[in-house]
Design a protein around this nucleic acid. Structure first.
Lengths: 225, 225
DNA sequence: CTCGACAAAATTGTCAACAAACGGAGCCGG
DNA sequence: CCGGCTCCGTTTGTTGACAATTTTGTCGAG
């Protein structure tokens, strides 16, 4: 069971992390109401603490709050997911370019190894493993870029679109498409070629946008074929 | 005096807006401590309300909070201001391109009029008026773009860098430089030319970045000349 | 049977008070 | 004279209770 009532430190920060995890892990489904009193019981924290956590998560874009009407898990539509991907396209290309300028030799090895692992994961059909490596790669590129402002924004956007991202990763054939795109990003960054890195990142996110739309169209009417 | 103790509705939302205004207007200077009890008195709201407001402003990037040490007005360094401008460069170019695709005839007239007003303000030496029009233009472009995700991010970044922006607008000769850049953005959007609009926005923000660095260098050692 | 008003329940917004943690002043010993 | 320690004031973190608002359930009229 994924019971979440067993927490050592009911501090404010912990509650935020706990609720965030519950949301991104799918324990709390979109549009589900988040009643302060209930969460207070579930996480063994006072209502004020829960309230503070909900405010924080609201600004992260994970929950929606309306005056005197309470909070609920925010449901991101396909349209919003596309918007988020468009923003990511711009920002990840910026980070990729910066990373290509600043990357160190040690980090080159790290990225290359990550690419090799991704290759193996796809070859072995390990979809969830590939998905995890995917996130690691994007995060590492952000870190190497040194653009903390962009990194922060991207991190928040990732939380909002994690459900769509995961659904996408599960589609058959998708890893085979995205793997070469990822390898191209790695190559360009490791070659200290900012322009090519930016273009590779842009192409990758463009592919993600197309796949998002296609996946949605296929899921809305899966029996029409 | 700019006393802020006269509020009709001490609601939570109002307190957030009041504190935010106080920060962006410069009433609360960077690194100034924000003691919950004091603010509670100043804005005639309970400490819990003030606390909630501070959490919200923390996630907006205007306030810094450390465990058991309280909150203070976040000071954005030059480096951070440049980072913010880099992110803006990517996102505003995206919005400009989208706006060029979606703009209506009525909005074309609106933007052209805005451009004319900016021209007049610069010609008349009305620096603060030009600064206000500047913000209105950027906001309007974001709205027309329909990219709410990017618009939201940009709005938050604007709050963080408003001080640097304003300092920049005050520098002599700066309006004369930025005016043609703004007019180029307007022209491209009104001509339904996404590529040119994006490029114009990129060029404008690039100019802002250069000016930021130059302004800082000049202010750090203003007597060396 | 449907619509509207009214009442009751549930939920959020607000408040005042208490407990814990941090920072500094003052004290003591070396 | 200086370093470390304790004590105290200040500020934050947390709790419980109360007030205001919204939603839900019920009843009666048409």
């Amino acid at each position: 069971m994924t019971e979440s009532a067993a927490d050592g430190q009911p501090g404010e920060r912990s509650v935020v992390a706990a609720i965030r995890d519950a949301i991104v892990r799918g324990e709390f489904v979109p549009n589900q109401r988040l009643v302060e009193a209930d969460l207070s019981g579930q996480f063994a924290a006072s209502r004020a603490t829960v309230r503070a956590a909900l405010i924080e998560l609201t600004n992260e874009g994970l929950v929606e709050r309306v005056q005197n009407r309470g909070a609920r898990v925010r449901a991101v539509s396909l349209e919003e997911a596309v918007e988020i991907s468009e923003v990511r396209m711009m920002l990840e290309s910026l980070c990729a370019a910066k990373a290509a300028e600043r990357i160190s030799d040690a980090e080159v090895g790290e990225l290359r190894e990550l690419g090799e692992l991704m290759h193996q994961a796809v070859a072995g059909g390990d979809v969830v493993g590939y998905s995890g490596l995917n996130q690691r790669l994007h995060r590492r590129v952000r870190e190497i870029s040194g653009q903390r402002t962009a990194a922060q924004v991207l991190e928040r956007l990732r939380g909002q679109s994690v459900r769509h991202q995961f659904r996408l990763a599960m589609r058959p054939g998708r890893p085979q498409v995205s793997l070469p795109e990822h390898l191209a990003i790695i190559d360009a960054i490791c070659a200290n070629d900012p322009a090519r890195a930016a273009e590779a990142a842009r192409a990758h996110l463009g592919s993600v946008i197309e796949a998002l739309k296609a996946a949605d169209a296929a899921e809305v009417s899966p029996l029409h074929r």
